[in-house]
Every structure is written in structure tokens, then in C-alpha cells.
Design a protein around this nucleic acid. Structure first.
Lengths: 106, 106
DNA sequence: CGAATATATGTCAGAACAGACATATAGTCA
DNA sequence: TGACTATATGTCTGTTCTGACATATATTCG
């Protein structure tokens, strides 16, 4: 894992490799966090492309500005579910979603 | 989406074929259900490929046989988060995940 | 500077989900 | 048939997530 990424993860409050005693799980957790970051960035990009404020997007999603901020910040309390639902609600297709995930967004 | 709507949808048999908006699902909800089905299938395929029983996989994931069954059945109580975490725990890479999502089935 | 706007952060009650367990169903084989 | 194995389904309870709210921190503009 790259240093800046690890810093970003720690900043977001993640404790990598601490939970279960299953061998591959810490690696899986890492992958999960990466995926979340990918989706976070994708969400922010799409919002920016539409020139929506967090407040406007929140209204569109039936959520709140603070939660949108947390989605984009990769906050640990935000699930992939919420991120994906938000992306889909913005009109992202499954294929586009796949592309975003594949690209890992940089 | 409301849970009772999802339940009603399942009762109507949406798992077998194309998901349509005959119950008034929005495009985003439709896409979400499709995505979950895609991930469900992918999970089942990967488990089958490894010749693991649901019980074995459950133990590997730190979960239970019943939850694995629900994951594969696309049960409404199963989130995308759980599906993705399971796939990643099985060693699926982000790129492979993207491919699975892009393919939609198969 | 102060007002306006956008974004970030912390907290909390209620809602949704998780694993676990019991149990049902289905297939296999002796 | 009955024992065995795999999978499906229903439900419970503790845990986690969510939207909402308050509030802090930019940033812009007059």
C-alpha cells in the first residue's frame, strides 16, 4: 500500500488489519477501503460535473449535506451501499459504475 | 427503498428474469436490485468454483450458513456492503469486481 | 471587516442490518 | 426407508448506519 494512501486511511479513522483472525481478511479490508475511496471520488467528480452543491445533492438523494460531506470524505460510517445508491440516484449506470471501479480513479 | 416493496417484488418473482418497473421502481432502485443480483450470482459462482459449501464459506467469512444463503438469494436484508465484503474476502480484486459488475451476469 | 455560501466535523435517536439459531426443504446413498 | 448433507427460510437481539441537527471552518464578495 502506498504511503499517502495509508495516511489517508488512518486519517479517516481506519484500523487496518485489526479485526478478525482470518488470514486474508485484513487484505480484504484494505481492498474494501480502497473501493470506498474509489466510489467517494467518483461521487465527488459527478457532483462537480453537475455543479451541484452538497446541499443540493443531499436534497436530491433525500439525505443531508453533512452526510454527503462524509460520503465524499470516505468517512467510516458511510457504507458502500450508501455510496452506490447515491451514484445510481445520480443516474450512473451499472456499466459506468464498473468502469469507475476498474479505473480506481486517481 | 422500502422493505415491504422489496418483499412484494420478490414475491412477484423478480429474481428469475428482467427487472421491470411494474411496481413503480425508480430507475435507481431498479439498478440497485440489478447490481445486487449481479453480485449475488458472482458470489455463488466463486463459491462453486472453489467447491465450498455455504457452511464452509460462512466459516471463512465469519458468518453463518443462513446468511450466505440469503446473500446468494438476493434477500432484501442483505446489503451490497456484505456482498462486496464477502467477494473481497474470497480474494476477488477490485478489477475483477469491476468486470463482474460490467458483465451483469454470466 | 461582515454577510453569504460551501464544506467539514461531532453527536444522537431511530431505522436497518448482522450473525446466530431453529427449522424446513431437497437431494443422495446405503 | 432413514441417515446424512446442502440449502432455504423465519425470527431474534445486539450492532451499525442513517438523516438530522448543531456548529466549525473555509472562501468569496461587497
Amino acid at each position: 500500500m502506498k504511503k499517502d494512501k495509508k495516511v489517508a486511511l488512518e486519517k479517516a479513522g481506519w484500523r487496518v488489519g485489526s479485526v478478525r483472525d482470518f488470514l486474508g481478511l485484513s487484505k480484504a479490508e484494505e481492498a474494501l477501503v480502497e473501493l470506498k475511496l474509489t466510489l467517494s471520488r467518483s461521487l465527488r467528480e459527478r457532483r462537480a460535473r453537475r455543479r451541484l452543491s452538497q446541499h443540493q445533492l443531499a436534497k436530491l438523494l433525500g439525505s443531508s449535506q453533512s452526510r454527503v460531506a462524509k460520503m465524499e470524505a470516505g468517512d467510516p460510517t458511510v457504507t458502500i451501499d450508501l455510496l452506490v445508491r447515491s451514484l445510481l440516484a445520480m443516474g450512473t449506470t451499472q456499466r459506468e459504475l464498473a468502469q469507475a471501479i476498474a479505473a480506481k480513479s486517481r
